[in-house]
Simulated assay, not measured.
Amino acid sequence: MAVEPLLATKAQRAFIGTVTIQAIVVLVMVGITFNKVDEHVDLHEGKYTVHVSLVTTWDKNSRFTQTLPCYLALFALAELFELFMAFDALRLRNIIQLIGLLIFHLALVVSAALQVHQTKSALVTLGDDCGSEESFTDCGGSGTLWAKIQPFLIVAPCVIGLSWFLMIFFVRKLYAEFGWAIFHVVGANPKMKTMYQWYQIMICLLKFDFFFFSGVTMQLLIVVLQRNSAEYGVTIAAIPVVLILLILCGLAVQREVKWIMSISLVMMLAASSYLYKLVRFYEPSSQAQYQTTRATLTVFTIVAFILLIGTFAVGLRCFADFDRGLQASKINAVPSRPKLAGEKASSNQAYQSGAPLGPRISIE
């Protein structure tokens, strides 16, 4: 089997098509929800544009007006990231990244389901049975704003869940296709193949580290932190620092630069202290400000911490493989289909679809 060009096979086109279509549908659902709320709630000033109960405070309004834009921004980031990761995995013929993408997609289902509860928690402040016309925006009964947007919020996890099963089907087909690509890169040596797979896992983890760090940071900046606080400035400053750290770590593991890799591993251990944020989400003195985003923030923070520890462990494994002959394969990791000059090659010059081979070698 030859190494096909990007999107040259039905399985590749079907996989990327599934990811693209579900991303469009989900973003449309979230966009419709945002638009319907924006018709009745001033999302910029934190004040309702319709009559509301006097017991509703400005702080509650403010938390809601920030929660829904954060929900929209978070899902836009997730869907764009998933599209990038899908194209990148197909470009690199990286089955490890495709498996990681399946896990990430399953996490999107959970996140979309959590957002249904969190949006209701932020919007419905007077309960489900109040039902008066004066409480259209902050009641949960029939005929209210919540009743209108709930179906669109429910569609999102359903569509993401359905597309997950389709993606599993296509990944199974891509598994066999990409196995031949790895053979083109590292050859038939089992030890080299194992080292290359650990390298692929490391690069994949670095990409997911960036997304989950960005997700936590986005929620803190949009919903929780005050712009005049010191914590807000520290969070802003951490964004380029983490981005540079991840990029340098990726280059270090690819080019096998030991001193940069050592610094990256030490910084990962230092960054794990960020887990202290979980305490602030639930301690009495600060839990109120995290009320409408606590569930999503908790999930993102825990996953980010687990990924960071996993990246550190895999980084140590990759560090141990430095200077063992894999560097050239890492740098030239994108296989391409060899071109044949002239007419069709005979059977002793080509294997199936035209990739020239040397003597027969057993991949096992």
Rank of each mutant, 00 (worst) to 15 (best):
Y71N: 05
E364F: 14
Q226K: 13
I96Q: 03
C130D: 14
E134Q: 14
T33N: 10
Q22H: 08
A86V: 01
F305I: 03
I154E: 15
R294I: 13
T56V: 15
E343P: 00
I99A: 11
S264V: 02
F213C: 05
I16P: 00
V110Q: 12
A270Y: 07
T298N: 06
G325Y: 03
A270V: 14
F136D: 05
A288H: 10
R255G: 05
I239V: 14
P338Q: 05
P69G: 06
G46E: 04
S264I: 02
Y48L: 14
V334I: 13
A122V: 08
I361M: 14
L7Q: 06
L7C: 05
T33I: 08
I361R: 15
T296R: 06
S135C: 15
W198Q: 10
V334G: 03
I149E: 01
S285Y: 09
K344S: 04
V242T: 13
L126F: 04
T137I: 14
T301Q: 12
G127M: 10
Y276F: 15
A113L: 11
S286H: 11
S286F: 11
S285T: 14
G100E: 01
P356L: 09
F64I: 08
S353N: 07
I331E: 09
S214E: 08
P284T: 06
I244S: 07
P240W: 03
T217I: 11
R13Q: 13
D42H: 07
L340P: 06
F210A: 08
F208P: 00
L357V: 14
S329C: 09
K330Q: 01
L248T: 09
L114N: 09
Y276E: 13
G310W: 05
L221A: 06
L326P: 00
V234G: 07
Q200T: 01
V3I: 13
L205D: 01
C204S: 14
L126G: 03
G215H: 03
R317P: 00
F104S: 03
E134G: 14
T235D: 00
L243H: 12
L126R: 11
R227T: 09
L153E: 09
L245G: 10
G315A: 04
K191N: 13
I24E: 08
H105I: 04
I182T: 13
L74K: 07
E39K: 15
G131H: 10
P151I: 07
C318D: 02
A78D: 01
P190Y: 04
L92T: 12
I331G: 02
T137N: 13
A341K: 15
Y232L: 05
L308V: 05
A252E: 00
E364L: 15
Q287S: 10
Q115R: 11
L54W: 14
Y282L: 01
A350N: 07
N35V: 12
V299C: 11
A271C: 13
V314H: 02
R324Q: 12
A23G: 12
E45I: 06
A147G: 02
L248A: 08
M192C: 07
S62I: 07
S346R: 11
V110R: 12
E39C: 11
